[in-house]
Design a protein around this nucleic acid. Structure first.
Lengths: 108, 108
DNA sequence: TCAATAATACAACATTTATTGAACTATTGG
DNA sequence: CCAATAGTTCAATAAATGTTGTATTATTGA
């Protein structure tokens, strides 16, 4: 994780609709979700959703898999955890609090 | 942590200079840093730094304390950890991976 | 092959956000 | 009080980003 990747990821998440989309994908976990389901459950227009998913994919926060006529989007947990780690890196001058990847990071 | 707070915080961090400032404050830990020192060590103009610190403060990611002629900025670790938790909340449908606050969060 | 559905791409406009320089306030020390 | 330092604020311009509607590509099933 370098600075540019982190800024790209943070920018992608710094938007209410994209944040909702991403959190929905995090909740869905490895199973992933199709855009149709997301559009339905979040109440976002499909073209807007496509635009936002592209932004998240560009930031490598989500991955895409084609399944016939549908796409399946998944949160990229490795990337997410890299981002979280980047924010807390060398915390408190590396003193009392080395940062460990969160439980979720490891499990997903 | 609600959505609006999260978006505000993510927006504040989604900028290379502010991200550098915040990470410097995270590294500094509870001791905090003065704007002069930050401006010097990061090579940012003082008025620009002031602008960016204001944005971080507005997002409650940093706190300010006046010390005579100097100000002392500190990272707000509670807020930061709330943000990290918000991103991974209900991960994988609350299944195998409940998210625990990171080591840093607890210690700082 | 044709109609329907899934999803994306594009373009134009409105809105935000960043950057820069100059001016301003407040505190310390002589 | 005066000069110097610390830090902030403001305003104008430049640049990036969000939104919306329309058009396009691709896949499925009859």
């Amino acid at each position: 994780m370098d600075e540019m990747l982190a800024v790209t990821a943070l920018s992608a998440l710094a938007h209410s609709q994209r944040l909702r989309v991403f959190r929905a994908l995090v909740v869905a976990g490895p199973a992933g979700v199709t855009p149709s389901v997301l559009a339905e459950s979040l109440g976002v227009a499909r073209n807007a959703l496509s635009f936002h998913l592209k932004a998240l994919a560009h930031a490598n926060l989500v991955s895409i898999e084609q399944q016939g006529r549908n796409l399946r989007y998944r949160a990229d947990f490795a990337r997410m955890n890299a981002l979280l780690g980047y924010l807390t890196e060398h915390c408190c001058e590396g003193g009392s609090c080395e940062v460990a990847p969160s439980a979720c990071a490891a499990a997903c």
